[in-house]
């Protein structure tokens, strides 16, 4: 935590931390405390008077069918994104770990989507799924399936999940491949001598050994799906149709900036903060474990 020798006491350390501290206070802690404060207020329709209402905003959310639906939808969305992109990445990493020649080339070819902004990922997939022009609706039409995510909520959800998962494959692939390559060769060789074939080895030796990475990625993917997919949803569906793709973060934005419901939006922010804190705690407790591994 600390070096055993320090520089003698002076003003310098305060100057060194000052920029970080000032920015943190002005743009993080003050706004966050404002959010907490506002979450206890209700503003009338004209923004003329505010009233302190304690937890009314929260009880309102708790009783709001729409909010609870959004909550459930966000969890479903996150789980789907994590599962889809992690399993795809795991399969690719498993095979890439096996090929000696070319594994770095495959890595190069698979990691670049990390650099694509979520909103661009959304735009790309939106075009592919464009009901009148897109290549995929065209193919689906040939097998008699009608695609229109502007009307069909499930299809819209499906589209944002695919776009979000696509972007995250790169990250998951990179961590899975690194984890597999850090397994000592002798363990794999021992399993081979014990008679386990490649697929069996993967299932019984490699996959259990990289389980810390799987857990770590689960948390990271959940955080990603919760907070970083705003751009995808905003560009592709605007939360629609009929809120079918509205996630918690999108709703905070929508209620706050479009609906101008300050108290409600702030209360939602506070709930999100609690979620982030929980995820951070899980992630940090876990990272300590990963260091040992």
């Amino acid at each position: 935590m600390l070096k055993r020798v320090h520089f003698p006491p002076s003003l310098l350390p305060y100057l060194l931390v000052a920029p970080q501290v000032i920015i943190t206070v002005v743009f993080f802690i003050w706004p966050a405390s404002q959010a907490v404060y506002q979450s206890f207020l209700v503003e009338d329709a004209f923004g003329l008077s505010t009233e302190f209402v304690w937890f009314e905003n929260f009880t309102y959310l708790w009783n709001s069918r729409q909010y609870l639906d959004t909550f459930g939808r966000t969890i479903y969305f996150s789980a789907a994104v994590a599962f889809l992109s992690m399993s795809f990445a795991l399969i690719l990493a498993g095979f890439a770990d096996r090929v000696i020649r070319g594994s770095t080339i495959y890595r190069t070819l698979l990691i670049w989507p990390y650099a694509v902004a979520p909103v661009l990922a959304g735009a790309l997939w939106l075009f592919m799924f464009n009901p009148t022009l897109g290549i995929i609706p065209f193919m689906l039409d040939n097998v008699g399936y009608d695609w229109n995510h502007y009307l069909n909520g499930n299809q819209a959800m499906c589209l944002v999940i695919i776009a979000a998962a696509w972007k995250q494959v790169a990250y998951n692939f990179l961590f899975y491949l690194a984890a597999m390559q850090s397994i000592p060769k002798s363990i794999i060789e021992a399993a081979a001598i014990d008679g386990a074939g490649p697929f069996r080895r993967f299932a019984t030796v490699i996959f259990p050994l990289i389980s810390p990475t799987t857990f770590f990625l689960l948390v990271v993917n959940a955080v990603y799906a919760f907070f970083e997919t705003f751009g995808i949803i905003h560009a592709v569906t605007q939360g629609g149709p009929a809120n079918a793709t509205t996630t918690l973060v999108y709703k905070v934005y929508n209620d706050g900036f479009i609906g101008l419901d300050l108290g409600g939006s702030a209360a939602q922010s506070v709930i999100l903060m609690i979620l982030v804190i929980a995820m951070t705690v899980v992630q940090f407790r876990f990272i300590e474990k990963r260091v040992q591994y």
Binding site: L2, H6, T24, I29, A32, A35, V249, Y253, S269
Partner: peptide, 28 residues
């Protein structure tokens, strides 16, 4: 590299920013 009063306070304050992504404090 420095030992100064509030060192841990500063450390935790910085840690807190980890828990406050822009998305949860948009409006304020």
């Amino acid at each position: 590299y420095f030992k100064f009063p509030f060192r841990m306070g500063v450390f935790w304050m910085i840690f807190i920013t980890l828990m406050l992504p822009v998305e949860v404090r948009i409006l304020p």
